[in-house]
């Protein structure tokens, strides 16, 4: 059992996500930075689908009621065990009665804490991920609060205390201002100049950036759209389309661009003009409010190669910690 002494800014239980229900409007939820979540699990000997704690900007203080092996990955929140610093991306032993505490991240946004055996909250629709909008999954479907108690699953004994991820596999969160996007979906709605302007703009991440979406601010987007007689059912605004499904990672043009993240709406009536690649969604999860980003158009083969190469890297990391 882990007792929450201080919840941090926004800490939730997350796993790889809740799938198979998109058609009833259920977004996947799950760890925003799947890479950091997955590696955190591998370091303590878990499978990738074990639930971790996702912390946002400022992490919690946690009291362990039992011995456990843990690892913190993602943004560096200077984790401490009983006030003494412990390394990131490393399997660390904690004893019953120890307090783990986290500070404020100065680079990146989200940290992940894995525990050997996983955070053992009940599954809802085959997932432990928290989806706060309708209050399901995780711990009571919400952000953690002071006094919450989290059960830990039984560890498989694969964890090696002290084992650490190679530096080469640790991302640089200070340098994530170029985001790869596969243009498409409804990008036929943009003029050539509009498309150029969209890709040439340094967009600023607004205060409204959370697990639902990353709202950007920049130049007026209406002018990027092709004039047309609107098709029946779309509504008269040039950015309107007949309501359709939105991929996670797609960029919705509603007044300003909004990149849809893992708790996003699953569909709607604003044109989407491209989709952030699955790997760069992880980087975006670490991009801070007020930072500026630019989109780089890549074709689907480049996106697939990058994904395959990261999958290989993860497999390598997994193999290291299995030994």
């Amino acid at each position: 059992m882990i007792e929450v002494l201080e919840p941090g800014l926004s800490t939730t239980v997350q796993d790889t996500g809740r799938y198979g229900h998109y058609h009833i409007g259920m977004p996947p939820s799950g760890a925003m930075d799947q890479y950091a979540h997955t590696v955190a699990n591998y370091v303590v000997g878990n499978d990738e689908d074990a639930a971790t704690l996702e912390m946002t900007y400022a992490g919690p203080d946690l009291k362990f009621q039992e011995d456990a092996v843990v690892a913190a990955t993602g943004a560096d929140m200077e984790p401490k065990r009983n006030g003494e610093p412990i390394p990131m991306w490393t399997a660390v032993q904690v004893e019953a009665g120890d307090v783990l505490s986290f500070e404020f991240a100065t680079e990146g946004v989200r940290s992940y804490l894995s525990v050997a055996g996983g955070i053992d909250v009940p599954e809802v629709m085959e997932s432990r991920s928290t989806y706060t909008l309708i209050g399901i999954g995780g711990h009571e479907g919400r952000d953690l609060e002071e006094g919450d108690e989290l059960p830990v699953g039984s560890a498989n004994g694969n964890a090696t205390v002290g084992a650490a991820v190679d530096d080469g596999h640790v991302p640089d969160y200070a340098n994530n201002d170029t985001i790869s996007v596969v243009m498409g979906l409804c990008d036929y709605r943009l003029t050539d100049e509009g498309r150029e302007e969209f890709l040439g703009t340094q967009w600023k991440i607004s205060d409204e950036a959370d697990r639902v979406g990353c709202r950007l601010t920049g130049p007026d987007i209406e002018g990027m759209f092709e004039e047309r007689e609107q098709p029946f059912g779309a509504g008269p605004d040039p950015t309107n389309v007949v309501d359709l499904g939105y991929p996670v990672g797609s960029i919705q043009m509603a007044g300003q661009p909004i990149i849809l993240m893992r708790d996003a709406v699953t569909g709607g009536g604003y044109a989407t003009v491209g989709t952030v690649t699955s790997i760069d969604r992880d980087m975006l999860a670490q991009a801070r409010t007020h930072n500026e980003i630019t989109f780089e158009a890549v074709d689907v083969e480049e996106a697939l190669e990058a994904r395959a190469s990261q999958d290989e890297q993860l497999e390598l990391i997994r193999a290291t910690f299995l030994e």
């Binding site: 498409g184 979906l185 036929y188 098709p231 499904g245 991929p247 996670v248 952030v276 689907v300 996106a303």
Partner: peptide
């Protein structure tokens, strides 16, 4: 109909721009 990639892990098919 339009067949579109949604990143590396989605395919979006727009059967028609207008509703029917």
């Amino acid at each position: 109909p339009r067949y579109e990639y949604g990143g590396d892990d989605h395919v979006f098919v727009e059967l028609s721009e207008e509703m029917s």
